[in-house]
Design a protein around this nucleic acid. Structure first.
Lengths: 272, 272
DNA sequence: TAATCTAACAACGA
DNA sequence: CTCGTTGTTAGATT
């Protein structure tokens, strides 16, 4: 599933490509992903202009003229693809949104994708996103802010970083290397980490996410133009590398259970 | 979508919650999922009491008083949700069935769901379910029985396990890991598998399904009370993990076409 | 990327 | 070689 590097990439491509365009048509093959009836949806968005596209954690938020907003969740994987001309429209799609000048995008959900509409006022209280924290690449996610988030918390560091209401956008793919890079065990309690260690953790979050972004994000995820990134399997440091040597100390990387998720760690570099 | 772990969970929740309740009203938005006209359906079920709820393969079978039966197929994904009070009724639904005391359930289909009614006599010869085999978690699904099922079959192992007339309840979600765990390629012919390999396959079927059941079934699938289970996306071994390493040998997991469906395999562990 | 049915065709075995 | 059985594939379904 897409984490911050993938979501930031696709939402910024959408912003660049779609801003200023006017919605002329919507075609919905499967209504279950909507929050309202398709004809009401059409009435509310046709003729509206794209003002802005951004991400809210792992959600994509499209702001339209007339105080309307589209909220998209890619669920367990989805293709969100731009087309320049009608003859590029894929054969299969769940939703097709057309703009003036015949371009548009299709959205093909396979599992649990969502395409919601809310007025700007409704959006303020929408449960899906109202408690999502700022994301790890937000300017406001500073060292100082991070330290205040940590203050008084006794939970394990992995649970903490994956909690979307504390900081959003990190998932169980990039977390392994973030923890490895800062030399901390996933089950280490925040309360037992000295400030120096927390600051190193903060740096690792930004470093690992930006490393992927600079590589164009994960290779298996398609962007708005159908391309994968250049962050490949070999770019993981310890993530998914059970049995291989640690890149720092050459000890053997282990896969351990951490609650309901798995974690990949170097047992030498990440003692608890 | 719902396979045995999800179906067993929701049908047992329905049995526990609904037994003894009397149907007072039915509201059908999409008539295509019915086998008879909605007004005839209403005539036949209103006033009837829920006697029992169980699964028949992936189907849910509700036995009513007066020798009537409701047969539900969740198709390719559906929400089947209980509500305690009318103000909890979701905005969008395909069917709403109300009981005395104002509770009820709604059903919303994604693709190809069915809501059929049959008398107990009709049910005996109903093509939809009359040839469905016992399910993979049935006590009678023993090692010995499995070997007799395999005998003389020439088809590919994936086709075989997904054939609901041979053994029911397995679908295209858990199959990936069942085949991986037993080290067999989805296109491997049954006739080319030694008995030892078939026994390993049998064990993998039970192990993977019970693993999910013990975790409360798949997290993205809602149960009768709207809750997901704890079997998350990372609990898949190779399923849906294209591009990630095999948990056994670290080779890269591939997505391949197998007939009209996709399969996720480790090319090293699952040679043909 | 999730399910099932059917029709037409292909392959196999006696 | 022919026939009946079994297996495969593509298309449709809402």
């Amino acid at each position: 599933m897409a984490e911050l590097p993938e979501i930031k990439k696709i939402s910024s491509q959408m912003k660049e490509t779609l801003t200023g365009k006017t919605i002329t048509k919507i075609d919905v093959i499967q209504e279950k992903c909507l929050n309202i009836k398709v004809n009401e949806l059409a009435k509310r968005i046709i003729g509206k202009e794209i003002i802005d596209v951004k991400n809210k954690g792992k959600w994509i938020l499209i702001n339209l003229s007339g105080q309307e907003n589209i909220l998209i969740s890619l669920g367990m994987g989805a293709d969100l693809l731009y087309y320049e001309k009608p003859d590029q429209i894929p054969e299969k799609y769940t939703i097709n949104l057309e703009f003036d000048k015949n371009c548009g995008f299709t959205l093909e959900f396979w599992w649990f994708g969502k395409f919601y509409i809310f007025t700007s006022k409704e959006l303020e209280n929408e449960p899906s996103i109202k408690n999502i924290a700022i994301d790890a690449l937000d300017k406001k996610f500073t060292k100082e802010y991070f330290l205040t988030l940590c203050k008084g918390k006794r939970t394990g560091v992995k649970t903490f970083l994956l909690n979307q209401e504390i900081v959003s956008g990190i998932g169980n793919m990039y977390i392994h290397d973030i923890l490895f890079k800062s030399g901390v065990h996933p089950k280490k309690k925040l309360s037992e980490m000295p400030e120096k260690s927390l600051l190193k953790l903060y740096d690792s979050v930004l470093e690992r996410l930006n490393f992927s972004i600079n590589k164009g994000s994960f290779s298996m995820e398609k962007d708005f133009f159908g391309n994968g990134g250049n962050y490949s399997q070999e770019d993981f440091l310890v993530g998914y590398r059970k049995g291989k040597p640690c890149p720092k100390c050459s000890d053997i990387i282990e896969q351990i259970k951490t609650g309901s998720t798995s974690s990949y760690i170097c047992p030498m570099c990440q003692s608890i």
